[in-house]
Nucleic acid binder design. Structure first.
Lengths: 358, 358
DNA sequence: CGACGGTGTCGAATCGATTCGATCGAAACG
DNA sequence: CGTTTCGATCGAATCGATTCGACACCGTCG
């Protein structure tokens, strides 16, 4: 065995061993051209003898101009990005449309100053996920690459296909339900306002400085109905954060306490409910809680949450389809998906003024 | 502008415009060789004028022999793989070691018959995650590629660097605690036994056919103490599955009901606890529940779970380090991490025989 | 029997960079 | 002033495939 040590065999080596030209060997592996059965067999046999795994992906990509990789750019850490059930559902949808077509998903946690180089990552297209206003930064370098860009719930940007949700409209719809029931003191529990994810009371300054698109839109929708609603921003979309927010909002004199909370995610809503229960505040009799997302809450809360159900899986599918269309040379349409109010059992009329529950 | 339509400019074009050779332009972008400041400026200016994003990743990869991409192969669907908090923690650890070094993570949901082609995905190394015995399949094709392979909690395979957890030992340790407290009727709630994830009672046949390594190891550890322990296998590591398993195990005549449940994950344990509470079975007085993982359960259960805490983030870091070492030409050592028993408040002595709780 | 169509194979060009060794001019040195 | 040295630049080879057009061969049809 004077064979080259443990280095990967090349297609050329296989071809040589099979006694054919490299072009023919290539035909065998790509299945594009007509190859005589005998020849094919000989090539495959040579490949097996050399333990050849198939053409080098990098070389193939260079020549073909396609890598088979779709980038998923997120501004969160790897773990955080997937800690949100909505993103997981989205991933499921993406998988339906992309992984099943043989595409791989390259996850790129990008933050200003991160060492991830969006210019150097091999990919055929990119999906911008959970992105904030800093998006513009990353979009610039990605656009230079002339690859299709799809953004999930992001501010409009030229050349980027938006996959949107009717965040403001849905939030307004939910808020209207509360107003119709008679609520007046309503508090918001929002998603993080920016990449810092600092938890804290909503102030005009903080809201103005917010870079998170989804949170801002949902605030906007709620304020269309309750212009003066205050609240707190959470540090993430988790039950724990909702619980903390709930405590902050509910541990106040009864007269000041909101009669309804509009949470910007179901997990936050579940946390608020838990906080309420611990404080002896009955849901929905003393406090109405409205969620957003429509995820399954098995085992997290036994309440049937009233919430705005968003088509999260479909969002992923739409993004996947948009990517595929763009890659096929078409110009994908912008998509706006709509959320639907689901009446659960956590929203009711406010308690009579001055009245005590029980 | 007779410039080429909208096609990506090449390094050669930039070089030509700057009046230098391609090699020099390359030096500018890679920063490897000495370049006069004036020249560098000229090249960068030319690049800006052409809206050049930097050297083509594919071509660079081909020449350099590195893609900057690490594959993460899982046998679950995209969403499912990340629905497990343990995997998320692992991802955090991986991110620490890899994303921070500029590597991207290419997620490849691979199942027999899937359209994802492990032979064609561009990557420098692969991490096998949550893999079963079907692993051998994927390992074969990956090994032909001569790339470093790291497997998380998988059966030993030649040429694959194992990052392991003391699953059996830890489970045994937990079981011993229960025995010391006097438990005799103990039931298991296991992770899925195979890729089918069918929920159902444990039978010798099903256990023998199990392909999931982690589940099998933890069963083995528990059986070392309670050789006859029965139980059910869950369809996933979720509260909902635990709840279902709990109902199956606890809705039986008191005399047959187990006094302790060994759950193979904290989420399963939380589900079991919820089922117990609904049935009026007090934890830990009537039923002890032992978990595994040591994840945060804020908002999922208010019990302080007694559990085996595994260093999940460290697992990811170890995997990341192993990959980096292998890529640097070293031979990474196998790693076995150890779990630690955390005494919470969900395990106690069994109720006196025949006794009724309050 | 010659033109034709189809199949199977091959050679050469190409994808877009990186890198090694050579070259050249200028500064430093004896 | 000749030589050495170093910094800057360039040419050419290379990475490993894919693809296009050319070509040879064979059977068929007119």
């Amino acid at each position: 065995m004077s064979d080259t040590a443990n280095t990967r065999p090349t297609l050329a080596a296989v071809a040589a061993r099979a006694g054919v030209s490299a072009s023919t060997a290539s035909l065998v592996f790509s299945g594009r051209g007509p190859v005589a059965d005998a020849t094919r067999a000989r090539v495959l046999e040579a490949a097996a003898e050399l333990d050849f795994a198939g053409p080098d992906p990098t070389a193939r990509s260079l020549r073909r101009g396609r890598t088979g990789v779709i980038g998923v750019v997120t501004e969160d850490s790897l773990g955080d990005a997937f800690r949100d059930p909505i993103n997981l559902a989205l991933l499921d949808g993406l998988g339906d449309e992309l992984a099943d077509e043989g595409y791989g998903l390259l996850v790129l946690p990008w933050a200003p100053g991160s060492s991830v180089d969006l210019a150097a990552a091999p990919m055929d297209a990119a999906i911008l996920l959970g992105c904030s206003a800093d998006l513009a930064h990353s979009v610039e370098v990605l656009q230079q690459r002339r690859i299709p860009l799809v953004a999930i719930e992001a501010p409009e940007l030229p050349g980027v296909v938006p996959i949107d949700l009717d965040n403001a409209e849905a939030a307004r719809h939910g808020a209207e339900l509360l107003r119709e029931l008679g609520h007046e003191r309503v508090a918001l529990v929002t998603l993080p306002l920016d990449v810092d994810r600092t938890r804290g009371a909503l102030t005009p300054e903080r809201e103005a400085a917010a870079t998170a698109f989804t949170a801002s839109e949902r605030i906007r929708g709620a304020r269309a109905v309750f212009p003066d609603a205050g609240g707190v921003s959470a540090g993430g979309s988790t039950v724990g954060e909702g619980y903390a927010a709930g405590q902050a909002l509910l541990q106040v004199p009864d007269a000041e306490r909101p009669t309804a909370v509009i949470a910007q995610s179901d997990l936050l809503a579940a946390g608020v409910i838990r906080a309420a229960e611990e404080l002896g505040i009955a849901v929905p009799d003393d406090l109405s809680v409205l969620g957003f997302d429509g995820i399954r809450l098995d085992g997290i809360t036994s309440h049937a949450l009233t919430t705005l159900v968003q088509p999260a899986v479909e969002k992923g599918r739409a993004a996947g389809r948009a990517v595929r269309a763009a890659l096929a040379g078409d110009t994908p349409d912008a998509v706006t998906l709509t959320s639907e109010l689901r009446r659960g059992a956590t929203v009711a009329a406010p308690p009579p003024p001055g009245g005590q529950s029980l």
